[in-house]
Nucleic acid binder design. Structure first.
Length: 885
RNA sequence: GGGCGCAUAGCUCAGUCGGUUCAGAGCAUCUGCCUUACAAGCAGAGGGUCGGCGGUUCGAAUCCGUCUGCGCCCACCA
């Protein structure tokens, strides 16, 4: 863009450089002899669109991958999308419904055709959005969890675990989603405290012939619509209140069905009425009790959550409608004692938000014990580091209490379970129909293909995602009998870092570790960096209904991707929620403006090759070189500890404060004057180093200016320029400059207080203990006249201040308000005397001197000495001022 | 119900081994400046009983206990 423009315009820069990077395949990686640095993207839903959470996650990923690339690593960031079975399928169902097509009217093949069309149309939008953000993914490696080869990996994995004896089919209580019409795993159920009612119902005692006596017991439930499925009423055998009930039978209200009284210690005597209605078909615990007492299972709720004919009454009604109606019926029948408001935890489907119905059904499960044990060890041993490590506890707890994974889903969008049923009801598990037929014929040679019926269910999406760090490199998967070595896998596995949200620590992170251990005998990554949830500035979750979630693409259009990236990172520390505020993106934009303008200044310098560097330039260059080295060291340390926002802030301040406010102001030639060639060259070099430090965070503006500041070849990019190396530096030099800064600030503050124009030269006298080589710095930046190092300030009017222990005196031609100066000095003296008293008290404490490390004691003695010097200085000043009065 | 974590300036957060003049940063605020890179800027300034209480220690923002207020995860008391 036009280098004279006062304001940086990202829209003229960002697309241009992204196209350049793509054109030259700078993001592409092939195995070579450099050490690899690998990240696999947490695959977003294929039909998803970019939200602020993606922006945070992918910015962090991109910072890490760009940093690694500039560190000389063979950086490979594999992008891709997830088929998200239930979410995508429900979107497709909704879309078809809007077109008047019902899923039930379609065959599996017809439905999948619609689904794939939808995927082709909407899939991958999010990946193109990531390009706008600057994500340096290796797009040539883009994968989709339902790509044919990745699906094959999933099927092979199923067969592998089945043959290993880890996968079994069983009838179990599962979490049924009546809207998604599928079972979901325990992890996909969200429990929320939900207000409901506790219905206290009268169950009359039967006379033994199915007639009600006038005696009754009270049973409390939150689900009166399930009473028709009751198989018993249960009491605690130790509950003396109900001993008279033993051996009796009661009648279910409304339908007058006789059910037995049973005893089980599961029942809590002090909860509810102490009488529990046992409904084996519709409650997990009741099912267990039913098993123990051989109770019949009466299923009265269908897949859609409606009452079935077995309910006898309210047939076809939705469970919640039925609940209201039955309450009324109970009341009218005289069976309702009372209703009490009650809040209880209710399970909801993560995807559809439907209330989960515990339902007995045949599902496929993966045994987790052995896998979880190894995966726990991976984290406990530190082979996988969780950042922040507070998640270790959460992880451990889950791994130690894990239950078998329900991996079947009653959906069509996904990998179909490779189990084939024989006419006799038995089944074989094989990767292909051909293999299945062969296996079936081994049982019964007469069988033909058309005799086999494949299982209707598909696999849980996470059953494909957990292979992601392996399958993106080698879909054939180690563990497969004919597996051949694969160069990509050998080179890129294990990946290095994983950046993801803590909400999928069990869904995804833990299971990837399991798959890695199982198939690779090695964990899939070394570090897992957990981001927080992006919230609005009021701390609310971002949601469509609240309308508090900005569209990242709008933000990028308004402020530029660099600004958005910096804005996100500014407020992100690992594991903490992000309170997003557009002001942070503005700060990012402002930083772009600062960088841009500093470039305009530097590029506009007139250079005179005949000039020798001035003293001030020499000091400035020497100082900034040290300062830069120190900052590089700090930044590297922050990155190594995944303190990304700290690294960023270090760089931000290095550029804005140290380079712009101090360094450039020092070497900036006077109006119309030129800069010497040597200093100019160093200034450009520093600028380049700074651009390189900033690049991982703000890739676009840094590429633009890196090209602008020096001539570059047609193939060159800052992307592969080397990060400034860690160099030794001289802390004494930095410290001396700090004193100069304090002096300059002191003089400027004095001007402010005394209403002196900023550029009117003032004379400065400084007493001993000062780095005299800094005089030119002070002179230039504080616009002083003569600076003299003296032992006595003499008789001039003026005011003084302390820099450490060195007294700096500003000569003022006008009148000084002696009383005001005295008051100021008295106050400082008082503070210093108090301070000294505290230090001395400490030093007088024998315990302190005896116990504290020598270094700490020495520091206290230094404090004492410094304080004494200051006190002496204040006293002398006060004395001198009093003499003037 | 069980477990984990958090509480520091108006806001968002650092504070690494208990010890450096340690009480910090960024943003916001206030004051003065349209100074020839940048007003999306420059220069300067103010602002905190480190949630409360108790303990350990020569020494506590930091360790322990407890209380209060938040947050997260797990969970089958109907």
């Amino acid at each position: 863009m036009d280098t004279q423009a006062k304001h940086y315009d990202p829209s003229k820069v960002e697309d241009k450089w992204y196209a350049y990077w793509l054109q030259h395949k700078f993001f592409h990686s092939e195995p070579d002899n450099r050490p690899a640095y690998t990240i696999v993207i947490p695959p977003p839903n294929v039909t998803g669109i970019l939200h602020m959470g993606h922006v945070l996650n992918n910015t962090l990923n991109d910072v890490l991958i760009r940093k690694a690339r500039m560190d000389g690593k063979n950086a490979c960031w594999v992008p891709g999308t997830d088929h998200a079975s239930i979410a995508t399928e429900s979107k497709v169902v909704a879309k078809l419904k809007a077109e008047g097509i019902s899923k039930e009217d379609l065959t599996r093949e017809e439905f999948l055709k619609h689904a794939w069309e939808w995927k082709e149309k909407h899939g991958g939008i999010i990946l193109s959005q990531l390009r706008k953000l600057g994500a340096s993914c290796d797009w040539d490696r883009t994968k989709f969890t339902m790509d044919p080869d990745l699906s094959e990996a999933v099927i092979n994995t199923f067969v592998y675990f089945y043959k290993k004896g880890y996968i079994y089919k069983g009838v179990r209580m599962v979490n049924w989603d009546p809207e998604g019409l599928t079972a979901v795993s325990d992890e996909e159920v969200i429990h929320r405290d939900t207000p409901s009612k506790f219905y206290h119902m009268r169950y009359f005692i039967s006379d033994g012939k199915g007639n009600a006596t006038d005696k009754y017991i009270i049973v409390a439930t939150t689900r009166p619509e399930t009473i028709m499925a009751d198989a018993a009423v249960c009491i605690n055998p130790a509950d003396e209140r109900y001993h008279w009930l033993k051996g009796k039978k009661v009648l279910i209200p409304l339908i007058n069905k006789e059910i037995p009284i049973i005893e089980d210690s599961y029942v809590e005597m002090d909860f509810g009425t102490g009488c529990l209605k046992v409904t084996p078909a519709h409650d997990v615990n009741d099912y267990e009790i039913g098993l123990r007492h051989h109770l019949p299972v009466i299923d009265i709720i269908d897949d859609h959550g409606r009452l079935t004919a077995d309910a006898q009454i309210l047939v076809g009604e939705d469970r919640f409608v039925a609940r209201k109606k039955i309450a009324k019926m109970l009341e009218e029948a005289g069976n309702l004692e009372k209703t009490v408001d009650y809040t209880s935890p209710i399970g909801y489907s993560e995807r559809t938000n439907a209330v989960i119905e515990p339902k007995l059904s045949a599902q496929w499960f993966l045994k987790m014990d052995a896998l979880a044990k190894d995966a726990l060890e991976s984290v406990e041993s530190g082979k996988v580091k969780l950042i922040p490590d507070k998640y270790r506890n959460t992880y451990k707890h889950w791994m130690e209490n894990v239950r078998d994974w329900c991996i079947s889903r009653q959906l069509w969008w996904g990998q179909r379970i490779p189990a084939w049923y024989l006419p006799d009801g038995s089944f074989v598990v094989e990767a292909t129909p051909e293999a299945a037929l062969k296996a079936a014929q081994a049982i019964n040679p007469a069988l033909k293909m058309e005799d086999l019926r494949q299982d209707e269910d598909v696999l849980d999406t996470w059953f494909s995602s957990w292979l992601w760090p392996i399958s993106v490199f080698d879909p054939e998967m180690p563990g497969h009998p004919e597996h051949k070595p694969n160069a990509d896998l050998a080179s890129y596995y294990p990946t290095n870092d994983l950046v993801t949200g803590p909400d999928i620590i069990f869904f995804w992170v833990a299971r990837m570790i399991m798959a890695g251990n199982e198939f690779m005998k090695e964990e899939p990554f070394h570090n897992v960096y957990f981001t927080g949830i992006v919230r609005d500035k009021l701390g609310r979750k971002m949601s469509k209904t609240l309308g508090n979630s900005p569209d990242p693409l709008d933000l990028i259009a308004k402020y530029g991707a660099d600004a958005v990236r910096l804005g996100m990172l500014l407020c992100s520390s690992a594991g903490n929620d992000i309170l997003y505020d557009e002001a942070q993106v503005e700060q990012g934009r402002n930083f772009c403006g600062k960088i841009w303008n500093s470039y305009r200044l530097v590029s506009g310098f007139k250079v005179d090759a005949s000039l020798q560097p001035s003293e001030v330039n020499k000091v400035a260059v020497k100082w900034f070189q040290n300062k830069l080295a120190q900052a590089v060291e700090t930044v590297e340390d922050h990155y190594a500890k995944f303190r990304i926002s700290d690294a960023l802030m270090t760089i931000y301040k290095l550029f804005w404060d140290d380079y712009c406010s101090w360094y450039l102001e020092l070497v900036k030639p006077a109006f119309g004057a030129a800069i010497d060639a040597e200093t100019y060259e160093r200034t450009l070099g520093f600028f380049e180093d700074l651009l390189k430090l900033i690049h991982p965070v703000m890739p676009f503006i840094t590429e633009e200016l890196w090209h602008a500041i020096r001539p570059r070849g047609a193939q060159e990019t800052i992307m592969t320029a080397r990060t400034p190396a860690v160099q030794p530096y001289d802390p004494a030099c930095i410290d001396a400059f700090e004193m100069a800064k304090e002096t300059v600030i002191g003089i400027r503050a004095t001007r402010n207080q005394k209403n002196l124009p900023p550029k009117e030269p003032v004379e400065i006298r400084i007493k001993t203990g000062y780095p005299e080589e800094m005089a030119p710095v002070v002179a230039k930046l504080a616009c002083t006249g003569d600076i003299r190092f003296v032992s006595d300030f003499g008789e001039d009017n003026g005011v003084s201040f302390l820099v450490r222990t060195a007294e700096v005196f500003v000569v003022l031609s006008g009148l000084v308000d002696v009383a005001q100066e005295l008051a100021k000095l008295e106050e400082q003296l008082q503070y210093q005397e108090d301070f000294l008293a505290r230090v001395r008290a400490k030093l007088a404490n024998e315990n302190f001197v005896a116990h504290a490390p020598e270094k700490v004691v020495a520091t206290e003695r230094k404090k004492e000495a410094d304080s004494l010097a200051k006190i002496e200085s204040f006293r002398a000043q006060i004395k001198s001022l009093k003499e003037q009065q």
